[in-house]
Nucleic acid binder design. Structure first.
Lengths: 235, 235
DNA sequence: CGGCCGTTTGATGGAACTCAATCTACGTGG
DNA sequence: CCACGTAGATTGAGTTCCATCAAACGGCCG
């Protein structure tokens, strides 16, 4: 376990201001709420499937995942929540969680700012819409792509999302998921994920070790599967 | 082609008042806007992928579908929009369509009411949240269910959605989709959908002819795959 | 140093795909 | 009223991804 720094509001501010123009007051409001941070251990459940969503939260650091478990134990991971992401945010009263949200890594969370003025409300709406778009893309991924395409497409999407909050390092980024998690995300088995990753390494597309991944040529990878970034607003 | 009746606001009113309590004014507003109906021919595109969403619409009658096409022609159908459903509704400015929406059957549409007071705004928010839940369920369906489970689960969900607007007839309901469409929805090929449907017929689970389907024992079917209805609010 | 979690490898099986042909229902024009 | 065209459903044979089962391997931590 490495030394723990106090996470700043940086990823959040970067992401939200990329989603909507924010005023200085909005920046200040985000910085203020980020001070009210709480830490959640890995594997802790944040929202339970079917339970009431107590309170929306912002992720300052760490990854969470949303999942659904079938009666016989099969698990589907629906999405990941990354630094700067919003979870449990809804436009209607008494929202029930449609799935569990669980901390994948240790998580640093903070509540929503008191005021959503200055563009924050718009950023939240866009963030929500982006989540929706990612869900739709995941449907296409699962329904109509091969194992290698699913992995490549998901890696590129994850990279784009991390770029938004400045959480990448050149062509590499943290990937704190086991092959088992990847399998449950992409509708495969961990054995097949393993073999597919190996073949992608052999082809020189990726390198993967100790929780970090390198995409050696994201553009080539993207054009190979005709990947294009998600968009929720007309240019 | 059968004689065409003027579609009433009935399915819409039923559905929305099931989603949120509506005032008499709200009923009246819905009835009023339903008179401004327009007809769209089957196969006509309503929103184009990536294009700007001109205007949200309500479906008075008919089915539409949302789909995404890959570069090599593979198609994934993301969802269907049924009578009483809302399409193109967003909480942020300048929304871009994340996918095409196309009329599956002939469609009767109307615009949103002038005022969203009296519970309509809340019903819209709940309707949107329900769509989101259905997308998540579709992810699980595609990622972790067998062909027969996918079909059964999707039929049960479609039935529940039609029940909301009163568009079923006992245990049967209209199903204006070819096996090709079902395949592109469920991540299968039409050949395999055909064989799976046949086996379900042989087992006495369903009957299917001329655009209508009968689920002979929805409860048995539901318990066989541990199906449970979608919910977006705590009881 | 042992236990555990995650990765890797091998052998085998099966659910679903592909390709291709036939069948059926239905609408259309002669 | 019937020949014809077409879209969709059905059937058959062969194939391929990906799943399953099982075991071995590697790194990390207590």
């Amino acid at each position: 376990m490495r030394a723990k720094l106090l996470p700043s509001a940086d990823p959040v501010i970067r992401r939200f201001s990329a989603l909507a123009p924010l005023t200085d007051d909005a920046f200040e409001a985000l910085r203020r709420t980020a001070r009210a941070q709480r830490v959640v251990a890995a594997r802790r459940e944040i929202y339970a499937d079917g339970g009431r969503i107590a309170e929306p939260l912002i992720i300052l650091a760490g990854w969470a995942y949303r999942s659904h478990i079938l009666a016989d134990g099969r698990r589907q991971i629906l999405s990941f929540a990354l630094p700067g992401d919003l979870i449990g945010f809804h436009h209607h009263a008494n929202p029930a969680a449609a799935s569990s949200v669980i901390a994948l890594t240790e998580l640093v969370l903070c509540p929503l700012p008191d005021s959503l003025a200055g563009g924050i409300a718009e950023a939240f709406a866009v963030s929500n819409a982006l989540d929706g778009v990612h869900h739709l893309r995941h449907i296409t991924r699962l329904g109509r792509m091969s194992a290698q395409e699913r992995i490549a497409d998901w890696l590129l999407e994850t990279r784009d999302r991390l770029l938004l909050s400045g959480s990448t390092l050149g062509n590499s980024f943290p990937l704190p998921v086991t092959q088992e998690f990847m399998a449950d995300t992409l509708g495969l088995t961990s054995v097949h994920v393993n073999r597919t990753l190996q073949s992608m390494r052999r082809e020189g597309l990726i390198s993967l070790r100790s929780g970090m991944i390198i995409l050696h040529d994201p553009e080539r990878l993207a054009s190979a599967i005709d990947y294009r970034p998600a968009r929720v607003m007309v240019a």
